[in-house]
């Protein structure tokens, strides 16, 4: 039975993202919006009792029209899932939409190489998260983040593999660097070249040059120490570990020691001036993500 599911998954996957040619599926915002316009008969899903179809479609439309607005919620551990969402929302919004509608209607679906059949707890909880800021009114994003957290497991999730209310803020939803890269490869079929780790920094001599060069050819996700990025010098006892994923959008040298970085996180773009030494200090992982264009 299990093998049947997996086989079925791969058949659907090939229809969805065409892995036989090993090319990353791409589509446009216009194609996605045209597809969304046709979803006039979407009825309430038996699988997702707390996700209203009207709000679900409104949320999907917002994500397609303004991909930067996807928001991980306040005090959750969804930043990794939100960061990787940047990729399909910009490069293949139609593939993302097809998957979301499939899982809403049927309670199971395939995305890339992954077959999703979420647990009963997730289906009940999606749409009920509250006190998370704008995520409260984005039921499709709740569904998407919880689905990914439920499906992908890394060593950080070892002691908390099953969802209980409130786990969205805990290690159940945590994402380590290798898990992030695995999710990007398996879901969206990108080529991912990464340096760094969960504990040791990449040790780049010139991070500005390294990042600038790679931004020319693809997307960059950074795994950073959030405590340093936002909290600064309030505590003496600080653990130098990365806890946050951002998408780097631009990096510009201001002078010999200062750069302006523009990145996406928390539903919007931020421009921040930082010193090069500070940049070296906060970055633990760099993923250079490029679409595959060749044939297998």
């Amino acid at each position: 039975m299990l093998s049947c599911c997996i086989c079925l998954g791969y058949i659907n996957a090939s229809a969805n993202s065409n892995p036989s040619s090993d090319t990353t599926a791409l589509s446009t915002k216009e194609q996605a919006l045209a597809f969304l316009d046709k979803q006039t008969d979407l009825t309430a899903s038996n699988f997702w009792p707390n996700v209203h179809p009207v709000f679900f479609l409104q949320n999907l439309r917002k994500n397609i029209e303004n991909p930067l607005s996807i928001y991980e919620g306040r005090s959750t551990n969804f930043c990794g899932y939100a960061a990787l969402s940047y990729l399909p929302l910009h490069d293949d919004p139609l593939g993302y939409l097809r998957f979301m509608l499939e899982i809403y209607k049927n309670g199971k679906a395939v995305y890339g190489k992954e077959y999703f059949e979420p647990s009963r707890e997730i289906k009940q909880a999606a749409g009920t998260l509250s006190f998370k800021g704008e995520l409260d009114i984005r039921p499709a994003d709740q569904l998407w983040f919880m689905l990914l957290a439920d499906h992908f497991k890394g060593y950080l999730n070892f002691f908390d593999k099953h969802y209980n209310p409130g786990d969205e803020n805990k290690t159940w939803a945590a994402v380590n660097f290798a898990k992030f890269n695995r999710m990007v490869r398996n879901l969206f079929n990108y080529k991912v070249e990464s340096i760094g780790s969960d504990l040791v920094r990449p040790g780049l001599r010139d991070p500005v040059e390294y990042l600038s060069e790679r931004l020319q050819t693809g997307n960059i996700a950074l795994f950073v120490n959030n405590l340093d990025l936002y909290k600064k010098n309030h505590t003496q006892l600080k653990f130098a570990v990365p806890t946050h994923f951002v998408i780097l959008l631009n990096i510009t040298e201001i002078d010999d020691d200062t750069v302006a970085i523009t990145y996406w996180d928390y539903g919007g773009k931020t421009l921040q001036r930082v010193s090069v030494s500070f940049l070296k200090k906060i970055i633990f992982g760099i993923s250079h993500i490029t679409p595959k264009k060749g044939h297998a």
Binding site: K232, N233, H234, T262, G268, K269, T270, L271, Q272, R273
Partner: peptide, 21 residues
């Protein structure tokens, strides 16, 4: 950004981008 209250951190929020200084 420090407990000696000598460094100010300001976030300026616009429609399209947030600036942190």
């Amino acid at each position: 950004s420090d407990l000696s209250f000598n460094y100010i951190s300001i976030e300026i929020i616009t429609d399209s981008i947030k600036y942190i200084y």
